[in-house]
Design a protein around this nucleic acid. Structure first.
Length: 447
RNA sequence: GUGAUUGUAGCUCAGUUGGUUAGAGCAUCGGUUUGUGGUACCGAGGGUCGCGGGUUCAAAUCCCGUCUUUCACCCCA
């Protein structure tokens, strides 16, 4: 028999890991709820047609396809099969795929439930997604996203609200982050001011890499993408402008660019009313890959840790349009739970409570005491204390070792002496202190 | 998808130019210790050396394929 294994890019989570991960989920969820968002869940599998074409050509390659059941080859596209054309063959043998993110399924959900939804609709969703990417640091084939979106309103109040959620959630988790914000319209204004509006996408992809490849790298990247040198100089010049006022003068001929600046100002009008814990800064080089964004875009990077972004999002004016519902604007952000996990692990900032499940372990010395201890166990459980009884009155040494392994803060020892006095010996496992208490006293002390 | 890289006990890793029966620490189990854990000492179990094929008298070691790990690119959380 060969040794068992799990597919690449996937991981098992033991009790400790799940405890920590739940701490992240619970923390983030509590913020979502406080801001008035409601939970939804969508199926693991979507129709492949719902997913394809939404993430660009690269994204389509990273979709996990689910092979049709039954005699799927009989119904396969035989021409494509003969020509070994995988791309053409896929639709005929796979009608379903695993969800790639939570935003597109959400858009589908909104369209399908448009009559029962009250707009603006504020939802959050915490579920795993799958990507057939090559695994790397902080990149898995299966990972959790925590999305918050609001659809059906153009108000920039929501941009401000979502950035507040980022700020508050990361503060609660204890992660020091920088929240970068930009606007796609500002980027478009740059392209327009440089006279290369038609090469907008090429430009954004190049400047998005500034952090990694530096200014010269960005220049080369743009040259490679056939952007004229005169335009490149203008773009590089504008990239150095850090204030909205300066940009405004450059954008005199770009209506879209001016609109972008106005949007950012409106955002600040709301956001600046409240003090934030983390740094929020305008970053003109922030571009973000997903091309459905149309307005404000935002990305979160953890300070002091070398890892990709731990969250991102933005405004998308017409996401539901591809599913037939026009004129519904949405804005949303996503938390990358698995990267947040990695960051917290690296910084070692998970609180003790995140990993502690059991509060009390009963230990019996003999059979009679074991039965008595079970009665005590029932009482402590009835009082809501997470407690357990070692299954047999075996040697103390062994039972105590189990207590250590479970990292339990208290044990209650029970033998003939305790039974006679109708008490238990409650031992603090950290200090080693031990006191005789009745069950009533124990419950009072522990809850 | 491109280019590298990794795999030996449950875990972390040794293992010489190919050469007897593949080792250590930690963990596990038992004992020193039948009313008290983390320490100490003694002992035991546990490996088709990722998998498949090849070269060789002989392969953990060399070659090929495959899966997996990590990393860069692409893209992205």
């Amino acid at each position: 028999m060969s040794k068992p294994s799990i597919p690449k890019g996937t991981r098992d989570f033991g009790p400790l890991e799940v405890g920590k991960r739940n701490f992240i989920f619970d923390t983030i969820r509590s913020v979502f709820v406080k801001y008035g968002y409601q939970p939804i869940e969508t199926p693991t599998m979507e129709s492949l047609s719902t997913l394809t074409g939404k993430y660009g050509e690269e994204g389509d390659k990273l979709l996990f396809k689910v092979l049709n059941n039954g005699d799927f080859l009989k119904k396969a596209d035989h021409d494509a099969l003969e020509q070994k054309n995988s791309v053409r063959l896929i639709p005929s043998i796979a009608k379903r795929g695993l969800r790639y993110d939570l935003t597109v399924p959400f858009a589908r959900f909104v369209v399908m439930n448009q009559n029962s939804i009250t707009f603006p609709f504020k939802r959050y969703q915490i579920q795993p997604v799958w990507r057939a990417d090559r695994p790397q640091k902080g990149r898995y084939q299966e990972f959790y996203q925590c999305d918050v979106d609001v659809v059906g309103s153009n108000s920039l109040m929501y941009e401000a609200e979502l950035v507040q959620i980022y700020d508050e959630a990361f503060a609660k988790l204890g992660i020091d982050v920088t929240i970068k914000i930009n606007n796609r319209k500002v980027l478009f204004g740059m392209a327009e001011a440089a006279g290369i509006a038609d090469q907008f996408m090429d430009m954004t992809m190049a400047i998005d890499k500034l952090d990694k490849i530096g200014e010269d790298g960005v220049k080369n990247e743009m040259l490679k993408r056939d952007i004229p040198e005169s335009a490149i100089e203008k773009i590089l010049g504008m990239m150095k402008l850090s204030s909205l006022d300066d940009l405004e003068t450059s954008f005199q001929d770009s209506e879209t660019g001016l609109k972008g600046i106005e949007e950012l100002r409106t955002f600040h009008k709301y956001f600046d009313l409240k003090e934030s814990t983390n740094t929020v800064k305008f970053d003109i080089t922030l571009a973000r890959g997903l091309n459905y964004y149309t307005g404000c875009i935002v990305e979160v990077a953890a300070n002091n840790v070398q890892i990709g972004s731990v969250g991102g999002g933005g405004r998308y004016d017409d996401l539901t349009g591809v599913f037939g519902l026009k004129g519904v604007s949405g804005v949303g952000v996503s938390f990358g739970a698995d990267r947040i996990y990695d960051v917290m692990e690296e910084l070692d900032i998970f609180p003790e409570e995140a990993t502690q499940g059991l509060s009390l372990l009963f230990i019996a010395f003999d059979d009679a005491a074991h039965n008595y201890a079970f009665d005590c166990l029932n009482k402590s459980r009835a009082a809501g204390i997470a407690s357990e009884l070692y299954p047999a009155p075996v040697k103390l040494n062994k039972q105590m070792k189990y207590a250590n392994a479970r990292n339990v803060p208290y044990v209650a020892l029970v033998g003939s002496q305790e039974m006679e006095q109708n008490v238990v010996a409650l031992k603090n496992m950290e200090t080693g202190d031990q006191i005789l208490v009745s069950m009533e006293e124990l419950i009072k002390k522990m809850s």
